[in-house]
Design a protein around this nucleic acid. Structure first.
Length: 961
RNA sequence: GCCGGGGUGGCGGAAUUGGUAGACGCGCUGGACUCAGGAUCCAGUGGGGAAAUAACCCCCGUGUGGGUUCGAGUCCCACCCCCGGCACCA
């Protein structure tokens, strides 16, 4: 009757069919109904594993859908082929990186073919080929001409394992993103791209990208890290201007010291002779520190006073200058004003080093506190406080008063009368006041702070060991929570701006600063320029020449590409080690000169490749602006979230730069972005033998080599952790269609999901069932033509007809919308089940059977193209599935048949009615039908119906008394 | 610490604008076919109760506690936990 499902022979038959027919070739000249679908191109390392399928199988299904929908789809593939792994593998195996790379590429292509994943292979590109990197070099020259590529000495991240520098984006938690080695800091002269010029636009234009996941946009936003504030110029005693950036200009009057980054250029000149040695030591120690050490040594802040002072421009206060490694040279101006009363780090620092603290912002809570030491006040105070309505606690003869700020004056007047001679108390809240029997002293300036401290010392000798008023108050636990806060509030102790409310404080201060020319409103970004130099061989050489007479000279465009020297590859090698590469003539003066020996970061290669696909063989230019402007932005770009910042931010930057140069009409490369999740699988770790492939793990999670207990973690599939499932084995056992179906069925494509061998079996069972079902029906429908007549269908037929169209709708909408293909497949499984049930009924309409079979094949074809093509041809259809239009659904079918309507009574479902659709969608009829139902009637007996809510097509809710 | 996302059966996950919670699959249980089954097929499967050669019925259930509503997985408030990003950023 029906033959068994044998994917091996089926898939072998169709593997080259689509390519030979040219279904995946885009018509590049025709752009109406065009669709540029793009998968992030892979780095060809070794072999593809099942985890890679998440990206490519998804993409292939989408593209097949789009082709059937009649789109002119551009769906290219290429290779991000430059990079360190090729070099490392080459060193290990003694072969050239290029040979290693091309071997992998061939393997990838073989695997794509086995998967049934097709591309427009005429457009294949590889970034390591001269006809590609020639244009990467061209891009560099263009950026250089525009002033967007420059060479500078700076502190860079150095990976000792990879022997090269890294971009900030490639350092994760102080470690090399690639190899995990601890990153060191080095001072080197390197090439940078000026991405910071585009910081604001990269930020603003995120709003132009509604088709991007919110979280990716947010990650970019955080990475760009815009902060608003002010630049304020302080002056050293010698007169050097010291510019600081602050987000809290409203706290300027509270700045009691300055802190410079240890690397700050002024440190050298400002340090006094007696501090020189200590400062030097601190700077050296800071320079030695790796990022990791700085992170781990967190919390406790260290720093050194450099023996110089600066003048605070707003109040003329003379404040000390320190250096500390919590201030980073790379952010803002590398110098900060420290306001210990309102910044937590500054507060810790000031407390530790005995630097005065002056509060200048009232805490918004409006709470103040006062502590009266035992013996500092006369009897009767407690009663007086009580009578005046103050809230306090008495403990061991001391009083702890908590008051509202508005009662401050009244409280001071009261308590002053009860103070013992020689004693005092404080009021700590919006400002700190010391209350003596004969007067009140405010701590609103450094001079006042000194005076208060002196007076207290005089009265109480034990105060002698305390360096600042803040320290004195810190000694009273009761006060601690009020000594520091970082909130916005009314300005106090701030000269002419005292009394400015919190919501206007920053704006008013900025205006005030600008009027006086001391400072101005300013914006700072966390984003740094993109360091693109790499000291390795396998990358695009930077097309620059160093000439003793002419300096740095660009290689003329017509001399591109600067070819990588073809050298035998043994051991680590940089271009600097190849004399015949280095030695050249200066393009300007013709004299002897040296080539730049750095290659570009591979993220430069991938920052523009989506443009090259449009005209991959063009020998005249990098891309054809005319065609590119018609085909881009990319309609749908699919790849992993791990590129949320690096690749996607760089690509946006390069697109904008090319846009500004007039090459591109658009300034965002990817209209819609979809980030697929990763496939995870258990990974086993043995202390001694490291990663153990899951298949080799011994009984009881033990190491097969030493028997030690293994550490199991479910991690993203990767070759390095040995937890991969090879597609070849899956295809051998179940066929590519099963792997494809399971990959898309396992869960929503954007989520990380664990691979399950049992799940694969489920997909296999379904396909076997479907195969048997359809092949079993072929004889019945071979000679049947035309669609069924809905009017002639019986109840069962009508239900199936309805189900069919609901499924078409569901699958279509998932492809066109959120790409929840797992639910689309579930719908196809349901339809298959319903179809199977229908066939067991007594009356079977062959035309309906034919209709369902045809549509099932078409609907499932993006997921399982081999089986679909095979069944389609057996059906006697002359054309390929890919030449057949995607089915449309019929609204009439959706409105046919019966629906089940639940009836709720007081919020609980008490009956389910089967009603004709016509009744269910009519509010009144629905209401009547529900009330007339016997079960409902019985429920309502003797109770009063208060309200009936009938929701057409949904439910009826009855409220009774 | 700050900013996002998310907590639904034994598991992966479904649930338009608030409208039958648990689609679909896995696993499990029972049965069939088998020398055998880790293959395949059929049936059942949130928990508890009632009932029992049947259908049906009741209670509880979407991290916790409150709230809005005829009705809440979905909305509001408070909290707990997990994941991701940033992290001395001035």
């Amino acid at each position: 009757m029906s033959e068994p499902y044998n994917p091996k022979t089926i898939e072998e038959r169709w593997r080259d069919f689509w390519r030979e027919k040219g279904f995946f070739k885009a018509d590049i000249e025709r752009t109406e109904r065009k669709f540029y679908y793009l998968n992030m191109f892979p780095y060809p390392s070794g072999k593809l594993h099942a985890g890679h399928g998440r990206n490519y199988i998804l993409g292939d299904a989408i593209v097949r859908f789009l082709i059937m929908r009649g789109y002119n789809v551009l769906n290219p593939m290429g290779w991000d082929a430059f990079g360190l792994p090729a070099e490392n593998a080459a060193i290990e195996q003694g072969i050239h990186p290029r040979d290693w790379t091309w071997r992998n590429i061939e393997e990838f292509k073989r695997q794509f073919r086995a998967w049934g994943v097709e591309y427009d292979w005429d457009r294949e590109i590889a970034t390591c080929e001269p006809d590609y990197y020639r244009w990467t070099q061209w891009l560099f020259l263009k950026l250089y001409e525009r002033g967007l590529a420059y060479r500078a000495e700076s502190d860079v991240n150095w990976c000792p394992h990879c022997d090269t520098v890294l971009a900030n984006e490639q350092v994760v938690g102080g470690r090399c993103e690639r190899c995990g080695a601890t990153v060191e800091r080095k001072k080197l002269t390197q090439w940078f791209f000026k991405i910071t010029d585009y910081a604001q636009r990269l930020l603003d234009d995120l709003e132009k990208l509604p088709g991007w996941p919110e979280r990716v946009k947010l990650m970019q936003k955080n990475w760009i890290g815009r902060s608003e504030g002010a630049l304020v110029t302080f002056k050293s005693e010698r007169g050097d201007p010291i510019q600081v950036f602050t987000t809290r200009p409203d706290t300027l009057w509270g700045a009691t010291f300055l802190v410079l980054a240890p690397e700050h250029p002024l440190v050298e000149a400002l340090t006094s002779p007696d501090r020189r040695r200590e400062v030097q030591e601190y700077r050296e120690q800071a320079a030695r520190q790796t990022e990791v050490e700085r992170l781990s040594a967190e919390r406790e802040k260290t720093g050194v006073f450099i023996g110089a002072h600066a003048e605070n421009p707003v109040n003329g206060e003379k404040i000390p200058i320190w250096i500390a490694d919590y201030v980073l040279m790379g952010y803002g101006t590398g110098a900060i004003m420290a306001v210990p009363a309102h910044d937590e780090r500054d507060f810790q620092f000031a407390l530790k080093y005995g630097i005065p603290i002056i509060p200048v912002i009232a805490p918004p809570s409006g709470v103040a506190k006062s502590y009266l030491m035992r013996g500092s006040y006369r009897g009767g105070l407690e009663e007086a406080l009580k009578e005046a309505g103050f809230d306090f606690e008495a403990k061991d003869g001391a009083l702890y008063v908590t008051l509202a700020e508005r009662d401050r004056e009244r409280y001071i007047a009261l308590v002053q009368g009860y103070l013992q001679p020689g004693s005092w108390t404080e009021v700590v809240g919006a400002g700190w006041q010391f209350v003596f029997p004969d007067g009140v002293a405010n701590v609103g300036s450094l001079a006042e702070e000194r005076a208060v401290l002196a007076r207290c010392r005089e009265l109480e000798p034990t105060v002698g060991g305390v360096r600042t008023v803040a320290e004195l108050l810190w000694g009273v636990e009761f006060y601690r929570e009020l000594l520091f806060h970082a909130e916005y509030g009314e300005m106090i102790n701030s000269g002419p701006l005292s009394g400015t409310p919190g919501d206007q404080a920053i704006r008013k201060t900025c205006e005030w600063l600008e009027e006086r020319g001391i400072g101005k409103y300013a914006v700072t970004y966390r984003l740094r320029d993109w360091l693109i130099s790499r000291q390795r061989y396998w990358g695009a050489p930077i097309p620059m020449v160093h000439c003793d007479r002419c300096g740095v000279v660009p290689v003329p465009e017509e001399e591109l590409p600067v070819l990588l020297p073809d050298v035998p590859f043994i051991g680590k090698k940089g271009l600097a080690d190849v004399p015949e590469f280095v030695e050249t003539a200066c393009p300007r003066c013709g004299g002897p000169a040296r080539r730049d020996t750095d290659t570009m970061d591979t993220f430069v290669d991938s920052a523009w490749y989506y443009l090259r696909y449009i005209s991959p063989q063009d020998e005249e230019k990098a891309f054809d602006p005319n065609l590119v402007n018609r085909w881009l932005p990319v309609d749908l770009y699919v790849g992993g979230v791990e590129h949320a910042i690096l690749h996607l931010l760089y690509s946006r930057f390069i697109t904008k730069a090319l846009h500004d140069m007039g090459y591109l009409a658009f300034d965002e490369p990817f209209a819609r972005l979809f980030t697929q999740g990763m496939i995870t699988y258990p990974a086993y770790w043995c202390e001694e033998h490291h990663w153990i492939p899951p298949g080799e793990v011994a009984e009881g999670n033990r190491c097969p080599h030493c028997g030690a207990g293994l550490d199991v973690q479910v991690l993203a599939m990767s070759k390095s952790k040995k937890n991969v499932v090879p597609p070849d084995e899956l295809i051998e056992e179940y066929g590519a269609d099963t792997e494809r179906l399971y990959t898309l069925f396992m869960g929503p494509p954007e989520r990380d999901i664990e691979w399950s061998a049992e799940g694969v079996r489920g997909a296999w069972r379904f396909l076997s069932r479907l195969w048997a079902l359809i092949t079993g029906q072929l004889p019945r429908i071979r000679d049947i033509e035309g669609p069924p007549n809905p009017a002639e269908l019986d109840r069962a037929g009508e239900a199936l007809w309805k189900k069919l169209h609901a499924t078409i709708k569901k699958v279509t909408e998932e492809f066109e919308g959120r790409l929840g293909l797992n639910t689309a497949i579930a719908a196809l499984m349901e339809l298959t089940g319903a179809f199977s049930d229908y066939l067991e009924g007594e009356v079977v309409d062959p035309r309906l059977v034919r209709e369902v079979v045809r549509n099932l094949i078409l609907l499932i074809s993006p997921f399982t193209p081999f089986m679909a093509e095979e069944l389609w041809s057996r059906l006697g259809e002359g054309k390929s599935v890919l030449e057949t239009p995607w089915p449309d659904y019929d609204e009439r079918a959706l409105a046919a048949g019966e629906v089940e309507i639940p009836v709720q009574i007081n919020g609980k479902v008490r009956a389910r009615l089967k009603l004709p659709n016509a009744v269910a969608v009519d509010k009144e009829a629905l209401r009547e039908a529900a009330l007339a139902d016997p079960v409902v009637q019985a429920r309502l007996a003797g109770r009063q119906v208060k309200r009936v809510i009938a929701v057409p097509g949904k439910l009826v809710s009855i409220v009774v008394g």
